[in-house]
Simulated scan of single mutants.
Amino acid sequence: MDLTEILESLDLGKISITKAKKMLSLYAVEKIEDFAKIDTSRKLRRGIPEVIFAEKKELDDLKKIILATTIKSDSVLVSRINKDDYKKILSFSKKNKLKIHTGKNTTTLLFSKKLHSTGGKVGILTAGTSDVGIAEEARLVCEAMGCKCICSYDIGIAGIHRVFPVIKKLISEEVDAIIVVAGMEGALASVVSSLVDIPVVGVPSSVGYGYGEKGIAALASMLQSCTLGLTVVNIDNGIGAGAFAANVANRSIRKKTMP
């Protein structure tokens, strides 16, 4: 159905308002000059907010995209802002009265008018402090999608006794999914998934050196894991892990609250 057919069907009572809203969301694309087409209704359609990948984008173009997107959407993520541009974007946001949420050790930003809670819960763990930036990207995505995050960083297998109190807390909090970010050999994801009956998302980070450097060993280890219930995203893909885990959590909550 094209746009006219959707509106006519709604007017004639052939489809509901909810159905029309869903169908109309497929047409919501914001064109910005000749360099960008923004999916402003992605969150309505998929539950995942628009994510702007800032790396290699010109600063002026990025500013135009941010302004156009934040007008139409209640939450927008801007990932991997160039370090030289990060403070400029913060100043630009303040000047334009845009509400932002930041993360530790990351240049990813969340622009959100108001964070709404769905009731979903996601645990986010890192093997080391060097992995925190990737975990914070995941946290920002999860919070943009309405999930509460229970985070615990630097609990890798070099001191495996640190893991158990954290796992106990995540179970008691009844989290719906767990994200594990780990570099080096990436073993923490396998350990965590062997201890819980909760979906686990492994994120190999590019922390590491020598043979298997830049996350290659961590990725291979997670993919070869013999523990079930572990899914794996690409190296340093905190954004993708956050989107997947929050989708799982939100769907779980919807199932629990259905009559």
Rank of each mutant, 00 (worst) to 15 (best):
A20P: 10
I52C: 05
D176S: 10
F53R: 00
S75L: 06
K104L: 14
A245T: 01
E185M: 03
N247K: 13
Y211T: 13
Q224Y: 14
S73I: 07
K19C: 02
C149L: 03
L26S: 15
A20M: 11
I17Q: 13
E136W: 05
L223Q: 08
L7D: 05
V76P: 08
S172K: 14
L109F: 14
K104H: 13
V78K: 06
S75V: 08
G202I: 06
E174W: 00
I48H: 11
T231K: 00
K57A: 09
L110P: 09
G202H: 03
A36W: 02
S205G: 10
G202E: 04
L230H: 13
L125N: 04
K113P: 11
V132F: 08
G202A: 00
A54I: 10
E185H: 03
S172Q: 14
I48K: 10
E8G: 00
E33P: 02
D74H: 10
P165D: 02
N247Q: 05
D60N: 11
K97W: 01
A187N: 04
V76R: 02
E143G: 08
M145C: 00
S152L: 02
R162F: 04
L98R: 01
I198H: 03
A28F: 12
I100Y: 15
E50S: 12
N250D: 05
S75W: 07
E174M: 01
E55K: 15
A220P: 02
P199G: 03
F111Q: 06
L219I: 02
K104G: 00
P199D: 05
A138R: 06
T129I: 00
K113Y: 13
R162V: 11
S206L: 04
K255I: 15
G242R: 10
G240L: 10
I52E: 01
S205P: 10
E8P: 01
K113E: 14
G13W: 10
V175P: 01
V232P: 02
E173D: 08
C151M: 15
P49C: 07
L44E: 07
G240K: 03
K256W: 08
K57Q: 14
A220W: 05
T4V: 15
K95F: 11
A28D: 09
V233S: 06
A135F: 13
A218C: 03
N237W: 03
G210N: 10
K169C: 15
V196P: 05
A54R: 09
P259C: 07
E137A: 01
V175H: 05
L7Y: 12
G202Q: 12
V141C: 04
L3Y: 15
I52M: 05
S152W: 05
